[in-house]
Design a protein around this nucleic acid. Structure first.
Lengths: 204, 204
DNA sequence: CCACATACTAAGCGGTTGCTTAGGTCCTAA
DNA sequence: TTAGGACCTAAGCAACCGCTTAGTATGTGG
């Protein structure tokens, strides 16, 4: 399979719950375009053409171009949060390791979605921005909780919990910026590498 | 002093070598606008208005809007590289620590410039992009060299040198994304925190 | 005094933008 | 059979984009 086809399949998987199919095709086209060129550099004509429809068809399914961005951002943030909350391990070190692995490898594997999620926030309307910031706060407090648990259990040695939380999230999020598919480093191997580096940072 | 005035002074300091003064005012206005709203969301009219001149005045000093971005990116990348090469320490651990401190705190203090440098790369023409990528390679190999020196001296315990290089740079660069001036965490304290976290990551 | 370069503005050009309108086609249910 | 809704397109509107042109003010060397 070509890289482009693989990228498309990953977007299909991310947005499979969106209906009707034409609305989904539009979201996928928008996500790919926003990730590749940025929100402001993407035109509604670009999106419609990629979805194989006329420019006016965008407005059958979405209120505006910004609405398209908001849907991608909202659902994308939920997916990112699920990577952290979906961890089943209970022991602090194993739990942290699994969370970092899932969260960082998600940012690699689904880097197109992740890029929109992490770098196009500022293009949202103030109301939509506030809604998304709430989800980001949940992500932040989830990670902070995991670090606090580890410290309480004596498994971590962390002088500055909030600072460490910042660094862990920062490290994982930035994967979406530099990751390029088809390189030697796979999402899986990035997850393993980062889980190890984070545990070292936390003095496990 | 207000935060806005402080931000302006930092931009003045970054671009003080640019002459004539009107060209400098234009660059500063462009850097602030590109950092705040992104390259594509910024109009040449925005830049000119912020610099207190007419829209046509941009083209007295610069070929195009993209040329403005290129100058910011080129000089900004050089400044970032200087943060790493300007380190005077020789002992590997102290050297790494000082480099990370300087590099990460630069991304906080000069976060407006750093944001343009790190997140607006893709808006450059292929030729300009290639020139800037060359500077980025220098930055990457400088950090990798420091890690290799530490490993060779037995001061670091790093299983994957290229992976660690990626993580160290990633951590520092991402500061430009999340840093906001006026918060409790100062550029200085971020530098100290990150130097410590990186040394832990490298098993110092 | 004038010739000329530098730095600037007012006006506007061709093209593009997000989005709307008017109308057509198809599917479904009474 | 037909009324009505869901979905889509062709055409285009007002606003805005990067950039250019024509012309003005200012200062400087001869």
């Amino acid at each position: 399979m070509t890289t482009a086809a693989h990228e498309f399949e990953l977007l299909e998987r991310t947005w499979r719950d969106v209906t009707p199919p034409a609305a989904r095709r539009m979201l996928i086209a928008a996500a790919a375009a926003f990730a590749g060129r940025g929100y402001h550099a993407t035109t509604t004509r670009d999106i419609a053409a990629q979805a194989g429809m006329s420019p006016a068809a965008v407005y059958i399914h979405y209120r505006s171009k910004e609405d398209l961005l908001f849907q991608i951002s909202r659902i994308g943030h939920r997916r990112a949060l699920e990577m952290l909350t979906g961890v089943t391990e209970t022991e602090p070190v194993a739990r942290m390791s699994a969370a970092v692995k899932a969260f960082s490898s998600w940012h690699a594997e689904y880097h197109l979605t992740a890029r929109v999620v992490q770098y196009e926030l500022t293009a949202l309307t103030p109301e939509h921005h506030a809604e998304v910031v709430e989800l980001r706060r949940e992500i932040e407090s989830t990670v902070r909780g995991m670090i606090e648990d580890g410290v309480a259990a004596g498994a971590f040695d962390v002088p500055d919990v909030r600072g460490a939380t910042l660094a862990v999230l920062s490290l994982c999020i930035d994967v979406a910026r530099w990751y390029k598919p088809g390189s030697r480093r796979t999402p899986e191997s990035i997850g393993t590498l980062y889980a190890d580096l984070v545990l070292r940072m936390l003095g496990a």
